[in-house]
Design a protein around this nucleic acid. Structure first.
Lengths: 352, 352
DNA sequence: TTGAAAGCGTTACCAT
DNA sequence: ATGGTAACGCTTTCAA
C-alpha cells in the first residue's frame, strides 16, 4: 500500500524527485537517486499501475487477440509473445475470440473498447467487416501474425510458396496423383488454407498436372485430417500416391489413418505437411518449417516500434519456410528406389 | 477521449450523477438515467479503466498463472477461465510461467507484485518456496486448479482415485502385468503424477499385485509416452499386458509406439489414460474423463466469491473422473474373450 | 538539482 | 434525487 509519498518522505525528498529517481526521467543527483531507490526497496514499493496509466496515458500492457489458444500454432505464438513481453516488462492481456462465440462478440463490442493496452497483436484473426471496423476505431497500433493486414503490419510465412514447394518436392520424387487435404470441412475456407491451396495448384499446373488437382476438405486438426484421410484412402484404385496437407496436424492425422488402413508411409503414400509441429519428428513427417514462437516475438518487436513511432509505415514480413525432409516422403512405389533418407529419432526400424 | 464530464454536460447533469447513472450505484431518477445513458451512447463513452481502478481500488481484471499454455489440459482450462471471465465483463492477464525460465523468475519477482488483478487463478503451478512466499505476500484472493493448495481454494479431480479406478478396470479384465507410465523422465515428479502413481499402487496392492508394480518414467507428452513405450515394449518376454498412463497424451504416445512395433491394441496390450483428451475418441482410448474447461469456469466462480467475501473459508472441490470405455482395453490375450465394446467413431474395422 | 502544484478520469462522501 | 468536492497515486510542467 505504501505509495511514492512514503518513499519520498523516507528518502527526505519530494514526491517529484522520488518519481524522477524511480522512473529515470529528468535530473536527479546520483546521491539522492541512490537514497530514493534504497527507500523504495526497503518499503517494497511498487508503483500503482492504474495511477501510472492515468498519469502517463500508457498502460504498459499489450493485448493479444486470437481465435484459439488450443491449437499448436496459436499456443506457440502466444508463448513467443509472452516471452518478448516479459523481457520488456510489459503485461499481456489475452482476448481469446473463438469464432461464433458470444465471447468473441463481447470482446469486439466491449472489451477492446476499453483500450486496456498500448497496442494489439492479432494472430490469425480473419475479422469480419464489423469486427474490422471496431479494430480500426480503436486507433491503436496493431500488428498481425498471419492475417488480413489491411494496412497494418503483418508477420507470416509465404504460404503460397510453402505449399508450392511441398508439392514440388512430391512431383520431383515422381508423384503425379497428389491430393491437397485441408480447407475446413464446413465449407468456409480460412485465408491461410486458401493461399496454400493456391500454391499447390500452382505447382501442379506448372508440372502440367492441372487435371490431377484434387481437394479433400478437412477440419484443420489431427482428428479432422484423420477423418478426411479415411475417406480419401478407402478405395485403393482411386487413392492418390501422395498428399499435401495444409498443416502438420492434418498431415499426421492422415498418416495415422493410413497406418490404420494398412497403407504404408512412405511406400504406398507420401505425406508432406507445413509447420514442423511438435509431433512432426516423432512421426518422421516431411514438412515445411515455420517457427511460430519467433513470429510472436517478432510481432512484439515490430509493435513496440509502432508504438514508439506512430508514423512508422506498416511493413509486411514474409518469412521463408524451410523444407525439412524426414521419412514420410519417397518416390511412388513401382518407381524403383525406396526412401533415401536417414531414420528419424523416433524410427523403430519397424514398418511404419 | 470523451470523458464522463462530457457525458454529464451533454445530459445536463453533474459528473456525480452521470457516474451514478452509468455504474448503477446510488439514487438516480429513471428519466435522468435514461438521458445519461443516451448521452454516453451517442458519445461512444467508455470509462477509462485506469481511472476507475484508481478510484475504486478494483482492477476488473483477473490474473491467470500457469506453467504452460501449450499443453492440452492447460489450454483448455485457460479457455474455460476466459469464457467465464468474458461473461462477467472481467479482463484476463496471462502469466505464462514456464519452469526454469527467466520469464518465470520475473513474473514472480516483478509482474505479480504490480497487482494488476483483483484475484489470481493458478493452474497446476507447483510453486517453489520462494515463489509461494511471493504469492502469499500479494495478499490477494487466489484459487488453484490442480495445485498445492496451501490454505487456498482448489479445484481438481481426485487423482489418486482416478488412477486407482483405471488400474482396477485393467485388473478386472484379468490383467496382472500392468505398468504405470508417467512421472517426468528428468527425475522430478509432478505432484499430479505422484498422486496417480499412488493410486495405481494402491489398486495393485489391493489386488495382491504389489510385486508386479512397475514404473516407466516418461515425459508428460505424446512424444514422451512414445519414447517411453518404445523402450518398455521392445522385449516381448518382459512386456506388460497393460499400461496405465498418467494422462492421455502419454497413453496415445504409447498406443502409437505399440502399433509401430506391431503390437496390437487391445489384443496384445491394453492402455488406459486419464483426461479424455481431444484425440482420445479418435484413438479409441479408454480413459478417465475430466473436463478442464469446466474446472477453469468453476475456479472463476469460486474466486469471485472469495473476492466478494474475503472471509470466505477456502474450499477444496474434488471432482470425480468418469470412466469412459472405448476400445483400447480388453482382457489379456489367451484369456479367451476379445473386445466386448463397440467400435468408436474412428474405427475403420482394420486391426488397430 | 529540487519542490510545489496542477492535472489524469473516475468514484464516493457529504451536503443540499 | 442531485451537485460540489475531495481523493485515488502517480507524472509533469513550471519556478525556484
Amino acid at each position: 500500500m505504501s505509495g511514492i509519498a512514503e518513499v519520498a518522505r523516507l528518502a527526505g525528498v519530494s514526491k517529484s524527485t522520488a518519481s524522477r529517481a524511480l522512473t529515470g526521467t529528468g535530473y536527479v543527483s546520483e546521491s539522492t537517486r541512490l537514497r530514493v531507490i534504497e527507500a523504495a526497496d526497503s518499503l517494497r514499493y511498487v508503483a500503482s499501475t492504474s495511477a501510472v496509466s492515468l498519469a502517463t496515458g500508457r498502460t504498459q500492457n499489450i493485448g493479444v487477440l486470437m481465435p484459439y489458444v488450443t491449437r499448436w500454432f496459436f499456443a506457440e505464438v502466444l508463448e513467443g509473445i509472452q516471452d518478448a513481453l516479459l523481457a520488456r516488462d510489459l503485461d499481456l492481456t489475452l482476448y481469446d475470440a473463438r469464432h461464433g462465440t458470444e465471447g468473441r462478440h463481447r470482446i469486439f463490442e466491449q472489451f477492446l473498447a476499453r483500450k486496456r493496452f498500448d497496442g494489439l497483436v492479432a494472430v490469425g484473426l480473419e475479422p469480419g467487416d464489423d469486427e474490422l471496423e471496431r479494430l480500426v476505431a480503436l486507433n491503436r497500433p496493431m500488428v498481425s501474425v498471419v492475417g488480413a493486414g489491411d494496412g497494418t503490419s503483418v508477420i507470416e510465412i509465404d504460404d503460397d510458396d510453402a505449399a508450392r514447394r511441398a508439392t514440388d518436392h512430391l512431383i520431383a520424387l515422381g508423384h503425379r496423383h497428389i491430393a491437397f487435404v485441408g480447407g475446413t470441412a464446413d465449407g468456409h475456407w480460412a485465408q491461410v488454407d486458401r493461399r496454400r491451396w493456391a500454391g499447390y495448384r500452382g505447382s501442379m499446373s506448372d508440372a502440367g498436372l492441372s487435371a490431377e488437382t484434387l481437394h479433400v476438405p478437412s477440419d484443420v486438426s489431427l482428428p479432422g485430417g484423420y477423418a478426411a484421410a479415411v475417406d480419401l484412402l478407402g478405395d485403393a484404385r482411386t487413392r492418390p500416391t501422395a498428399v499435401v496437407a495444409t498443416c502438420d496436424e492434418v498431415a499426421i492425422g492422415t498418416m495415422i489413418a493410413a497406418r490404420r488402413l494398412g497403407i504404408r508411409v512412405p511406400t504406398d503414400l507420401s505425406v508432406v505437411g507445413i509447420d514442423d509441429h511438435e509431433y512432426a519428428e516423432m512421426f518422421g513427417l516431411t514438412t515445411l518449417e515455420q517457427v511460430p514462437r519467433e513470429q510472436g516475438a517478432t510481432a512484439v518487436d515490430l509493435l513496440l516500434r509502432h508504438i514508439d513511432d506512430p508514423e512508422l509505415p506498416p511493413s509486411v514480413v514474409r518469412l521463408h519456410a524451410r523444407l525439412i525432409m524426414r521419412t514420410s516422403t519417397a518416390p511412388p512405389s513401382g518407381t524403383g528406389s525406396a526412401t533415401f533418407l536417414d531414420s528419424p529419432m523416433g524410427d523403430t526400424g519397424m514398418p511404419a
